[in-house]
Amino acid sequence: MLSVSDLSIARAGLPVLQGLSFSVKDAEALILRGPNGIGKTTLLRTIAGLQPPLEGRIEGAEERVAYAAHADGIKPTLSVTENLTFWARIFGAGGIDGALAAYDLRPLAGRAAGSLSAGQKRRLGLARMLVTGRPIWAMDEPTVSLDKTAVAMFAEAVRAHLGRGGSALIATHIDLGIDAQVLDLSPFKAAPGSMDAFEGAFA
């Protein structure tokens, strides 16, 4: 269970979202929607613990979130297996066989990651979520550069993850065909001109 209450967050010192509250129970997924620049990435980074919120509280996220960003953290000179094994060992969560199978990476296992196509790299990046063993997936536009089959693989992997009692926060524009709540972030856009205490002291 992840719960967020009365959260305000800022990007580059400028507030983007405020007064945001929601919760995601185990075995549930939440789809985040909203126009570009609304703060989806900032929200996911805040939940992953990479940046502190301006205000509000996040509960149940500590050491439980696996974060997937636009950049996959893939080293081109390492093979697919080596990339995955590295992250599995860092998170101390066991084998990579399930992850390789889920995204059909077995035929590519020995190839250097630098020789993969954009979509194949993305699949490798998503497979990384499986080897973290973390219950909450926070994913930022996970389907970029994936074809239809790969999107289906991804949806299947998320469904399986939910089936194991995990949960997921996904910022995406497309319909994944997953049974999930949808949260539109537009109403929580920070009021124009809201400032932090220092700049506010001039107003």
């Binding site: 400028l14 124009p192 001109g193 400032m195 700049e199 001039f202």
Partner: peptide, 9 residues
């Protein structure tokens, strides 16, 4: 800060 506010508005 004022410039940022103007731009945001």
């Amino acid at each position: 800060a004022l410039r940022l506010r103007e731009r945001a508005a």
